[in-house]
Structure formats: C-alpha cells, structure tokens
C-alpha cells in the first residue's frame, strides 16, 4: 500500500522531468547540447519566488484559476490507477469525474483568459474550447469501449481486467493508444497542435491563453499542464502494461513507457512542424475516429461475433 503512495508522490514531482526530457531530445536531435533535463524545475522555482503583475481589467476569476487548475490536475492524478496497485481514490464512474475535473479547470482557465479582455487570449480560449469538445467526446468513446470490453465502470477495475494481447485486441490497443497519444498532445499543447516555444500569439492555443500570467500563478499553470500530460500518458501506459507480469516488473515497464512517450513527443517536435490552425480539428478528430473504430471492433467482433477467451469478458 505504501508503494502506491510513494509512486504517486514520485509522479507528482516528475512532470518537469518529462518536459525537460522532451527539450533534451529536441536539442540532441538538433545537434545541440541543450539545457539540463532538470531545467524546468529551476524555472519553476524561479517563478515561484517572483511577484506578479496583474491586469487591472481582471476580476477574481483571474486569480483563482491557476490554483483551481493545479488542484484539479492533482486531483485527477489521484484517480489514475497504477498497474496492480490501483488508484488513490476510486469509485464507480471515476473516469467521469476525472474528465469533468479537467473540464472544470479548463472552464476557469478560459474564463481567466477572457477576463483579461485581450483579444489574443480570446483567440486562445476559443480554440482551446473548440478542441476540447472533440477531445472529451473521444475520451468518452475510449472509456466506453473499455467499459464494454471489461463490463467495469471505474478506472481501477477496467485496467485490472484489461487483458489485451491477442488477435483483434492488439488492433484495439494500437487504436486506443494512438487516440490517447493525441490527447496527450492536446492536453500538453504540443506540436503538431500547438507550439509552446513559438512567439507568434496568433498561432498559439494554450500558450496564448496564459499570456498575462506571471510569477506564482504562471508556475502553477506550467506545472499543471505538464502534469496533465503525464496523467494521460499514464493511461496509455496502463493500456500497454500486460496483466501477466509481476508488480515490480510492471512498474518498471510503466515508467519506461512514460519515458518512451515523452521521448516520442520530443522526436515528433523535432521532425514535424505544427499544423495549420484550420487543420488542427481534423487531426484531433482522428482521435474520435480511432476510438470509434476500436469500439466497433469490440462491439461487433468481440461482443456479437468472435468469442474471446479470458476473464470478465
């Protein structure tokens, strides 16, 4: 039991390691030495120590949003299970709470962006909310497919019963992993959807929403964005870790998968440019498409057609 909390604590401190990892991969690929992997931690500490500049246009929403943002990311983390260990808190339908908690923070971040009265931040907010309509729908299809596959309705029990290693299930696994990977990119505002390093506000999405933040609040936001990426990556890792392993091996595999995901993100950022804004929705829509195909496979082949051996199916 202790192990679970230790790992969760590790995850809580890890997010900036992963962002550092992305930057490192990008630097190496570009042939640079790059900043240290732990650079984001230094930035975080520096920001925490600073004061703030707050727009006079804003209301209290602007100031409470970052705290809510970080709180909901952490709360969402608590709902994510670890292989064999389960999650910190769990109940029937926790993935709904998970999604809505993230939506809650999104709601307030969008309001905070609109609170400044800046049209740039309006652009960002409007794009963010548009993409979230697609992502949320797709996420529910994914969870629905998994629920259909396992007859369970909570994260822990779904992943505890998820045995996907043969036949069609490999296909399902690939489809769902790709969908969730797109979700990681969207939640972390990464290339090809968004570019955190660009300096042109018109093309940005998440980054432009937080233009007016500084100091502690900005630190909170950076942290929670990084954490959200980790959280979604943990879902992918949960999908990929097979059930027949022992606990220690599965945990190591789990960590390895997380690192791999972020390295892939780094590679993607090095290899491709960000999409035109008008093409972003289509790209995100792949998530819906893949998850729907996965659902169709589960429903038609596993449910109605091919008998599948295994517990709980």
């Amino acid at each position: 039991m202790m192990l679970k909390y230790i790992i969760i604590a590790l995850v809580i401190i890890s997010p900036f390691f992963f962002t550092g990892l992305i930057n490192k991969v990008k630097a190496i690929w570009a042939g640079r030495k790059g900043s240290p992997v732990l650079q984001p931690y230094f930035d975080f500490v520096r920001l925490i120590q600073k004061g703030e500049v707050i727009s006079k246009t804003t209301s209290f929403i602007f100031q409470i949003s970052p705290s809510i943002n970080i709180a909901s990311s952490l709360f969402a983390l608590m709902l994510i299970p670890l292989p064999f260990l389960g999650s910190v808190i769990s109940f029937k339908g926790d993935f709904i709470l998970f999604s809505y908690t993230l939506a809650f923070s999104k709601f307030l971040m969008i309001l905070a962006a609109l609170d400044t009265g800046s049209s740039f931040e309006g652009i960002g907010a409007s794009r963010e909310v548009t993409y979230s309509t697609i992502v949320e729908t797709a996420f529910f299809i994914i969870m629905g497919s998994l629920a259909l596959l396992t007859n369970q309705i909570s994260f822990s029990s779904i992943f505890a019963l998820l045995n996907m290693s043969t036949g069609y299930t490999i296909l399902i696994k690939i489809l769902l992993v790709i969908s969730l990977f797109i979700m990681v990119l969207v939640e972390g505002s990464r290339i090809p959807i968004d570019d955190p390093n660009t300096h042109l506000e018109l093309t940005m999405i998440h980054e432009v929403m937080i233009l007016d933040y500084s100091g502690t609040d900005l630190a909170f936001i950076l942290y929670s964005t990084a954490l959200k990426m980790v959280i979604v990556s943990m879902l992918i890792a949960n999908l990929l870790v097979p059930l027949y392993l022992t606990v220690p091996i599965s945990l190591i595999l789990f960590a390895f998968i997380l690192i791999l995901i972020f390295m892939i993100i780094g590679l993607i950022e090095s290899l491709i440019a960000r999409l035109r804004i008008s093409h972003v929705p289509q790209f995100i829509f792949f998530m819906t498409a893949f998850s729907l195909i996965a659902f169709a496979i589960i429903a038609f082949f596993l449910r109605a057609g091919v008998q599948f051996s295994g517990k709980g199916l």
Binding site: V53, P66, A71, L211, G215
Partner: peptide, 22 residues
Amino acid sequence: FYLIRYFLLKRKRVEYFKTWDC
C-alpha cells in the same frame, strides 16, 4: 493551493497594470 498562492504572494510585490497589449 489558493492559500499557498496567498502566502507566497503575501510578501511579494503584486502590481496592477493594464493587460499585455502586444
């Protein structure tokens, strides 16, 4: 977290200025 923010900012300088206008 709101309390953390509150205590962190308590001893720092918080300026009120107009929105960043690019």
